Amino acid sequence: MGTWVLGPRASSSRDPGARREKPVNAPAELLIDTPAGLARVTTPAPRDVWWELAGKDPDTNPSQTPLWLDCLCATGPYRDASRLYEFERGRRLVLPLVGRRRRPRILDAEESWPAQWGIGGPVCPESVSPAEARAVFADLARLRALRVAVRLRPADQAVWADAATGFSLEPHMTQMVDLDGGFGAVWERRIGRRMRREVRRAERSDVEVEVDRTGRLVPVFYDLYRKSIVRWAEQQHEPLALARRRRTREFPEKRLAEVAARLGDGCAIWMAWRAGEPAGACIVLRHGGHAKMWRSAMDRELAHPVRAVPLLYRLAIEDACEASCRTFDMGESAPRSSLAEFKAGFGAESFRSPRLLRERLPVSAADRRLRTAVKRLIRFQDP
């Protein structure tokens, strides 16, 4: 099956010699021959089309929007590599994708998304056929990058995972609360009895809660995050210097500030205060019918006695219900861990959200072996 670069959109040239150099990151159009018929691929994907499809796709996550890609590119060494696929029968879909700036293509990694950036995957208002899904992964397999990876949302795995011939599957999960029926139904039927007691205890305590949708509380949250790193290092038996370096590199303050600035009302920082001091906080992202718990942090000595964090989660879930969200994604955690059990107390159920990976060299496997060896050396423990 061939791939052809097109000129203007009206062109239908199929001459293999028509390929020509484009300015870096300038839109390019390709015509590919697939089992689903001819398909036009535009990269980077036009923003107006991406927003249109995201608005029509009821399963679009906050991390599948153009704003999320902009946050990646603004705070890391990334470039827009998103792809718009248009099939002969009129089906259109966008695959959010970033590559690495200033890196030879043969050493590049094109991913949806890189680790720590959450769920990516195709944005498509309609169900794709198996042939169309295979066509997308066949196109990705032709990329010259060293690594190509796509993290699927739970709703997509049935069709897309089966279509990824030649891609390995990395198991991941996410815990989600079904908000169907509104907060009354969630509180009475899904949130556990023990967690309801914790929330009521917090409501009787001297905790004050505010929500910031402007980014004003970014520095306050990050101070709590730094305090949490100390606690996490102790829990996980990780050297503090290593924990600080790893955590702040994965989640620098500038990244939070960028997300808060670009998402606006779509990024809420919930802050619990006790005696005028920040006790606990969480960040919730929202797009369309989906809310996502992105990060949380606390000063345990202030927050735990008054159960400030359960109260924040309860208020954030109620807020998502009032915004007509259908799901509340609480993120990934190790199976059977204390964190997974905590989320289950709020009615969160586990769903598979695999990462599909294709590499020309087994760099990810080597990285996993190295990380596993280091964890064994320091006797690392999952929270």
Score class of each variant (00 low, 15 high):
145 A>E: 05
209 V>I: 15
216 R>K: 13
67 L>P: 01
274 R>E: 10
7 G>R: 06
357 L>K: 07
252 P>A: 05
260 A>C: 12
164 A>F: 04
57 D>P: 03
242 L>H: 15
48 D>Y: 13
355 R>W: 02
183 F>H: 13
231 R>K: 13
173 M>C: 14
51 W>Y: 12
237 H>W: 12
215 G>R: 08
75 T>Y: 13
61 N>K: 14
47 R>Q: 15
95 L>G: 01
367 D>G: 13
167 F>I: 01
162 D>K: 13
60 T>N: 03
126 E>K: 15
150 V>I: 13
196 R>H: 13
143 L>E: 12
6 L>T: 04
101 R>T: 09
311 L>P: 09
203 E>L: 08
308 A>K: 01
349 E>H: 07
54 A>F: 06
28 A>Y: 02
149 A>L: 01
264 G>R: 14
353 S>T: 15
192 G>W: 07
31 L>A: 12
137 F>G: 02
88 E>T: 15
156 D>P: 06
196 R>Q: 13
174 T>C: 10
21 E>L: 10
374 V>I: 15
311 L>H: 14
251 F>G: 01
180 D>G: 12
251 F>V: 06
310 P>Y: 01
65 T>H: 13
19 R>Y: 04
268 A>N: 03
284 V>H: 00
144 R>P: 02
314 R>A: 10
324 S>H: 11
174 T>D: 09
345 G>Y: 07
21 E>N: 05
345 G>F: 05
178 D>R: 09
75 T>I: 04
208 E>P: 02
76 G>L: 07
52 E>Y: 06
96 P>F: 11
145 A>W: 04
166 G>H: 10
320 A>L: 06
112 S>W: 02
337 S>R: 07
182 G>K: 06
22 K>Y: 11
291 A>G: 14
16 P>W: 07
21 E>F: 05
149 A>T: 06
266 G>M: 00
145 A>F: 05
133 A>V: 04
172 H>F: 14
331 G>Q: 14
280 G>L: 03
150 V>H: 03
77 P>V: 00
342 F>Q: 04
182 G>E: 08
306 V>M: 01
360 R>V: 04
226 R>E: 12
117 W>G: 00
279 A>S: 10
238 E>V: 05
117 W>V: 00
323 A>G: 06
363 V>Y: 14
341 E>R: 15
203 E>D: 11
312 L>H: 03
355 R>Q: 08
73 C>L: 11
57 D>N: 10
368 R>H: 13
165 T>S: 14
346 F>V: 01
33 D>G: 06
295 R>V: 02
290 H>G: 03
339 L>R: 04
187 W>C: 10
196 R>F: 09
274 R>V: 13
362 P>M: 08
19 R>G: 08
169 L>S: 14
214 T>A: 09
43 T>R: 03
63 S>W: 03
17 G>K: 09
67 L>R: 12
44 P>T: 04
103 R>N: 06
251 F>W: 09
340 A>P: 07
285 L>V: 06
120 G>V: 04
284 V>E: 04
329 D>T: 07
372 T>G: 15
209 V>Y: 09
22 K>T: 05
362 P>N: 08
346 F>G: 00
367 D>F: 09
4 W>P: 03
222 Y>D: 01
380 F>S: 12
192 G>D: 13
